[in-house]
Design a protein around this nucleic acid. Structure first.
Length: 635
RNA sequence: GCUGAAGUGGCUCAGUCGGUAGAGCAAUUGAUUCGUAAUCAAUAGGUCGGAGGUUCGAUUCCUCUCUUCAGCACCA
């Protein structure tokens, strides 16, 4: 028997094996029937998904995470079933639901092509149409292994072997296909109304690069066709926002074959960069930071002392001259340490906050490179705070406030994660606990939301990471606050306490933008290339109606330039519409159209990128409007 | 690094089942003087990513290599 709890709390029992559609037909309560039918048919109701778990059926909506998870996980079974029908020799690995959709990994002797993908998709639709009865049963570990062995599913056997001795494994069977799955699971495939296989990729078995690479198929399904269309449109929109595309179109930055992972900044990209750096400097000065600059190349022995050589030598660039080995810095910290150590410090000087826009080089693996988001040469907006232990809480909290302020300027949402001790690390457990607890304590006392990310800390200490979301929902780690007891030890840093004795300072390593390059990439996507006025490479363009007003345009341009506005004059012999179109494509925040009317009244006609034609105003009023925009960093 | 795909004028792309390539936009020049997202015309621009091989002949076929893209793995 299966027990069904309806959304109106009524409970009824049915013979196991009954089809969802038959249940719907046998329900007497009109409300329950209505809701249940809606689930089955994927109709108006929010409750589109009926899922069987154990012998109880529970209702989820596609909008809650569990419902979505079940929906996509079941879809992955349909994908696997389709592949097994077309390629019976294919071995199944794993097929989970992910943030958007699902995937399944296969080990097959044929290489999947886009054409094959279409055939598989077609087969999936066929299976959904057949709507086989979905049954759930539980096997012991031993039974499960023999079942999978019999089916030749060696990957599944490996998975089961890794489970607990007494584990009970639930299986879901749909027609000629079965697969293990903890559930919940759809009990009726007919709710799947839209199917799309999205891409093909290679993926290592169990995520280990020493293992065989399997073929992964990504897909997505929805209870409504319109949702699929919406989703595909969203992907299209995200593509339009891609910083690599916009970087090229807006002439901001580029990558060349001559320098893989070494970005070139064009004059316009450089404007954005400089504005960000100016802002950065101002804000650091306000908060008691002092700016430093340390060398890009330092003696290789120093990198052995810092521990970087041992942990990251395969990702570092080296050079030798006069029979002396040097390393190109992959981080700024040792330079900061050396600078701290040039002189004796008193507890009265602490905290000392050294900020550095440091250029670092890391030999990222070729496949990791991604536009400006992952490069081999980038600038960290670094800072090292040297302090006594009793200053940890205040300083960490101050940095969190700082980061929150900066992200707020751009309107970014972010999430915080505390990363704990990794496998490769230096220092004692005691020090790690002390440092990790200090970070958690700060977050707790502030009442901030955070997640623990076990084993993801730096080799010298735990950290709080700040993750920003980009336009297609990918998150990028930008800010980080790392608490370090190790470098002070390795570099023998000291300060003299009030007791006249030497003490070991604690160091905070932190970045806000993370990498300036990456941050610009994220900003480009976030604003879809339409930067707020203070960042816009060209802030305004004067457009003449015809050549008769060039002189007037020149006059206004000079006036704006005097105030530091980045302004251009387009007095080309072209139609107004043509010139506006060009300015619009270049996403210039303000256009000032001038013709006879404006010249006579000493006005400009403002057209903004976002709002369109805003009408004529006095030249001075337009100038003030722009200055106000820049001042407030409004967008 | 791994699996798969792709590299053709500044950009977006077409094309050649092997006979050294085209379009649109951009650029340049000329005409047009036209008030809120494309005026018309002409001109110029490419040894088809690079190296090697097969061939009478390679941008096209083969091998290697570089770069990019989608993932995976990695990310101090």
């Amino acid at each position: 028997m299966i027990k069904i709890t309806f959304p109106d709390k009524t409970v009824r029992e049915f013979e196991s094996g009954i089809k969802a559609i038959e249940i719907a037909e046998s329900i007497s309560t009109s409300f329950a029937k209505k809701v249940f039918s809606a689930c089955i048919n994927g109709a108006e109701s929010d409750l589109r998904t009926a899922i069987s778990e154990d012998s109880t059926i529970q209702f989820y909506t596609f909008d809650d995470n569990e419902g979505k998870d079940a929906f996509w996980h079941t879809s992955s079974h349909v994908l696997a079933q389709a592949v097994k029908r077309l390629y019976p020799q294919a071995k199944l690995a794993i097929g989970p639901a992910i943030d958007a959709g699902f995937y399944y990994d296969f080990d097959v002797d044929v290489t999947f092509t886009p054409e094959i993908l279409e055939q598989i998709e077609e087969e999936m639709r066929k299976i959904i149409k057949e709507n086989p009865l979905i049954e759930r049963y539980v096997l012991s570990r031993k039974e499960a292994i023999s079942k999978e062995l019999e089916a030749g599913e060696t990957y599944k056997v490996e998975l089961i072997n890794a489970l607990d001795e007494n584990a009970e494994i639930s299986f879901y069977e749909q027609g000629d296909f079965f697969d293990m799955c903890t559930g919940p699971h759809l009990m009726d495939l007919s709710v799947i109304k839209a199917v799309k296989l999205l891409s093909l990729a290679g993926a290592y078995w169990r995520g280990d690069e020493n293992n065989k690479m399997l073929q992964r198929i990504y897909g997505i399904t929805f209870p409504k066709k319109a949702q699929l269309e919406e989703y595909l449109e969203m992907i299209e929109e995200a593509k339009k926002r891609d910083h690599r595309k916009l970087g090229k179109e807006l002439d901001l930055y580029s990558l060349m074959d001559e320098g893989p992972g070494f970005p070139f900044f064009h004059p316009k990209g450089m404007v954005i960069r400089n504005e960000l750096e100016n802002f950065w400097r101002e804000e650091h000065t306000k908060r008691g930071y002092e700016e430093i600059k340390t060398p890009i190349i330092l003696d290789a022995d120093m990198w052995r002392r810092s521990g970087h050589w041992e942990n990251y030598k395969e990702n570092m660039y080296f050079t030798e001259i006069d029979e002396r080995e040097f390393a190109v810095k992959p981080m700024n910290c040792p330079g900061g340490m050396l600078l701290y150590n040039r002189t004796m410090h008193s507890y009265k000087e602490l905290p000392i906050r050294y900020a550095e826009l440091g250029i670092v080089h890391r030999h990222e693996k070729s496949g990791a490179l991604h536009g400006l988001m992952r490069v081999r040469n980038f600038t960290q907006d670094d800072a090292h705070i040297f302090m006594s232990e009793d200053q940890i809480v205040d300083e960490v909290s101050g940095v969190i406030d700082f980061i929150d302020y900066v992200y707020g300027i751009f309107g970014f949402e972010y999430a915080m994660e505390v990363s704990t001790k990794p496998e490769k690390s230096i220092g004692t457990d005691e020090q790690w606990n002390l440092a990790t607890n200090a970070l958690i304590q700060v977050l707790e006392s502030r009442g901030d939301q955070y997640k623990i990310n076990p084993g993801d800390g730096a080799f010298y200490g735990p950290k709080i990471d700040f993750h920003l979301k980009d336009s297609i929902g990918r998150t990028w780690q930008c800010g980080t606050i790392q608490l370090d007891f190790q470098m002070p030890e390795r570099f023998d840093l000291n300060y003299i306490g009030s007791d006249g004795e030497k003490h070991r300072p604690v160091v905070i390593h932190r970045v806000i933008f993370g990498s300036i390059e990456r941050f610009i990439g994220i900003l480009t996507e976030h604003f879809a290339g339409a930067f707020p006025t203070w960042l816009a490479p060209i802030q305004s363009r004067i457009i003449t109606v015809n050549e008769a007003y060039s002189e007037y345009g020149q006059k206004i341009m000079q006036q704006f330039k005097q105030k530091g506005i980045r302004i251009e004059l387009d007095d080309r012999n072209e139609k107004l519409g043509y010139k506006i179109r060009e300015a619009q494509i270049q996403k210039i925040p303000y256009m000032f159209v001038i013709g006879e009317n404006e010249q006579d009244a000493n006005q400009v006609n403002i057209r903004s990128y976002r709002e369109g034609n805003e009408g004529a105003v006095d030249v001075n009023a337009a100038l003030e409007k722009l200055l106000r925009d820049i001042e407030t960093k409004r967008f």
